[in-house]
Each structure stands twice: as C-alpha cells, then as structure tokens.
Design a protein around this nucleic acid. Structure first.
Lengths: 219, 219
DNA sequence: CGCACTCTTGAGGGAGCTCAACATTTGTGG
DNA sequence: CCACAAATGTTGAGCTCCCTCAAGAGTGCG
C-alpha cells in the first residue's frame, strides 16, 4: 500500500534550491529523518503530522501556497504529506558544509513558530464548536481567502488537527449550517454567512479584551 | 490587585544583555507588547500564557533554568509570568537599530519552536491520564532531573497547560498514586515509582514504533 | 487562632467518543 | 456509460470521561 504512497518527487535540478512535485498522499519527509532540507509551498496543500503509539495522529499544521515547513534543527519532528498534488521549493539547510544561518533561516523559523502557536491556540479551545469555528477563521483569514474558501483536506484531517473524531467534526459542521453561520457548497467549499457569529463562537468577538489584565494596565 | 503583581524588575545595567530579577507572580511581559527583548532563565521558573475571551488561560510553556522564551517577531504572542522568584538574562532583539540576526537568534528560535512543539504534543494526547503522564515525563526528562523532581507550579497552572480542570488534575494525580506509578512528597515533589508504566500511560512505550509508516519505509 | 488560599474528593450532568447504520461521492472495470 | 466497489461523509443511540457544582481537608501567614 505504501508503494502508491511513497515519495513521488520529481526533482528539477540539483542546485541549492530545487522545485519538487509531489502527488496527493505522497510523503515529503518522515518524522525522525535528518532535517537536511526545508520547503516552501508554491501550489497545493501539505500537512505535518505526528503519530502516537495508539495509532492516532496529531496534525500539527496545514501549509498552503507561500507557507514554509520543515524548518527544524537536527531531525524532523513530524511527517509531512501532500494533502493535494503540490509543487514545493526545496532548500538545503547546509550549503557547502556550512549551515545556512542568518536572516533567511531566522525568518523561516519565525514562520514555523507562528504556525506552531496557531496550532496551540486552536487546541486551547474547549469545545468542538469553538475549535471548528476557530479553525475556519484561521483558514478564512489567510491572505487571498475571503468569506468563501476551499477546505482541501478531508474531515479526518480536520478531526486529527483539532483533536476530535470525524463524527464530531461532521456533526459540528451540520450544527453550524443549521444555525446559518456557514453554508457548504459541495464538500470542499465553505461560505461564511455570519462572520460575527463565527468569531463569537471562536471566542474572538473582542480581540481588545483577549487579555483581561490589559484592561487594568497602565495604558 | 495588579499593583502587587506588576513587573518588579531590578535592572542590573543597560548593556545589550542585562540581569533581571522578578518575584513570584510578576509579569515579565504582556501578550501584545512589542517583542524588543528575549529572555533566558538563570534560576526559577516562568510560564507563558494566552488568555481567551471566556477568561480561561492556555499555558503555552514552562521555562526552567537554561530555557529561553520571548523569542518572537513583532509582538509577544503570550504573557510571561514568574511561577517562582526568578532571575533572567534579558537580551535585546535590536542592537543599535539593526536586528540581531544570525546564529544567536536562530538557535533561540529553534529552542522556542521545540518548546511549542512539546506543548502541541501534550495537547495531542486524548485522555487526562495520558496528558498528565506525558507532562510528568517531560519534566522528568529535563537535564538534571531524575526520578524525583519538583513541580514548582500550582495545580491550576498544570490544568491550564493540559487543557483540564484542577479537579481532574487532582483526581488524576490521586489515581496515579493509587496505582503506585508515582508518589507525592509534600505537594511539590514527585517520585516516579514505575517509569515503564508512566511511559506506557503517556503512549510512549516504544518510541521506535511511534511512526507506523516507518515500519514499511526503505530502512 | 482565624482567615485565605490551595488542594482533594464526591455526586450529578453534559459533551464528545464508540458502535452502528446509512448516504454520498469517487474510482474502476466491464 | 453503467455497475459495482471502495472510500468518505453523515446521522443516530448509548456510554464514558471530564466538567460543574458542592463540600471539606490541608497549608501558610498575620
């Protein structure tokens, strides 16, 4: 089964930066592999996931065009797989034996850190409604996204990202639709009907009061 | 109430790197503040937390001697507070108007990314037992820690870190003690009685099989 | 000693998981 | 193009685990 799932990389050249194509379901790198490259998404969608003993997955992020992933010291902490057919730009961490430091790596690390924190923020929400609403908002707020956007990943991917089951994800979608907060167009496209309601569900109605302490601060 | 809680910083000098003392409960920086400094813990313990609209906290990390925190672009994404009296080394992100790039910042970012991923890993566990067991293992595996270690933070801090209530945390502690997996000495000190059992509860009994796909990989 | 705070424990209820069935979509071969 | 199979998604019923509510025990401090 893994033969159809293996890395279908088509390498364009051997320079320090190379274009790589990967088919849906293909593996970019495995958790534990030496982290000799990092990647930028040019088109398509990629997911990173960690596997637990009991077999369940924790998806630690989705990466769309413009996002970077795989920026890590030593070894990859998660497996990266293609959610859809994708084109990536692969860059070497080492360049002629010397690590590539400086602002390129720093800014890539910053973006990786941002996506990790966004994942923590999602998992910090308490109920299925809050998590799904917050997740949809994260997608909706991506540059280029609007009140109508695509969800290229499966319900199972969403469930494993939010720490829920596909059943609960599906039920929560139905609930949001029933309350006319969103509408589905096909299974992949979402239209936000009531943004304020969605933000309220996600617990972000008033960003200014997100930190109660600030209400008392010197200001 | 915040007057007793405010930043009790005693600044040792104005150079690019400065020693800072902070008392238990004091705030190092607030979520949303410009991220002009980053910190290394010399002694004591620090927590970082995000606040949600509904008032609950998500603690995104605990930082002990040798750890770094507050390495972020632009603004701090979390508030940092002292769990115990602490001494920190504070470093400027900017140095004479120029950002400090290069390996110093990269390695600080790598460590910050590592602690974020460790937080995601904890929250990825499904049950209260698994989360607490995994949390105790994270602490037990810190350099210098052994099968007996201190938990400087309160039950409320642990609960907000693991996404549980203090009641569930307390009950889970009692359960682990009843099953003779750990023992408490006072309220702050933990002794691990059955490490294998603790690892099994945390779902880490066999790290080599953590990624099922690897069993099939090219080896 | 008394007060405030933290921690522990119990009882009851609710959100989400499990198990199960069915619907819908996608893919494949005739 | 259709028939069929496989994969994915939806929905319901029952149960479990954790949260809520409540009370009490332990600890530190003035």
């Amino acid at each position: 089964v893994f033969s159809t799932n293996g890395p279908k990389l088509r390498q364009e050249n051997m320079a320090e930066s190379a274009l790589v194509e990967i088919v849906k379901g293909g593996i970019v790198f495995n958790q534990g592999d030496p982290a000799v490259h990092w990647f930028e998404v040019l088109s398509g969608t990629v997911r990173t996931c960690r596997f637990y003993i009991d077999g369940h997955r924790q998806l630690t992020g989705f990466f769309f065009a413009g996002d970077v992933f795989g920026v890590e010291p030593e070894r990859y902490g998660a497996t990266a797989e293609a959610v859809t057919d994708a084109v990536l730009r692969r860059s070497a961490v080492q360049k002629e034996g010397q690590p590539v430091g400086g602002d390129v790596r720093s800014s890539a690390l910053e973006r990786a850190l941002g996506s990790a924190q966004s994942c923590i923020f999602l998992l910090g929400h308490r109920t299925a409604n809050e998590r799904l609403a917050a997740f949809l908002l994260v997608i909706a707020r991506r540059p280029g996204a609007r009140l109508r956007f695509e969800l290229p990943m499966s319900r199972a991917d969403i469930a494993d990202h939010l720490g829920l089951t596909i059943h609960t994800v599906s039920r929560t979608f139905s609930d949001l639709i029933r309350r006319q907060v969103i509408a589905l167009e096909g299974r992949q496209f979402v239209r936000v009907l009531d943004l304020a309601q969605l933000e309220w569900l996600a617990g972000e109605a008033d960003e200014g009061l997100a930190n109660p302490a600030k209400a008392f601060s010197l200001a």
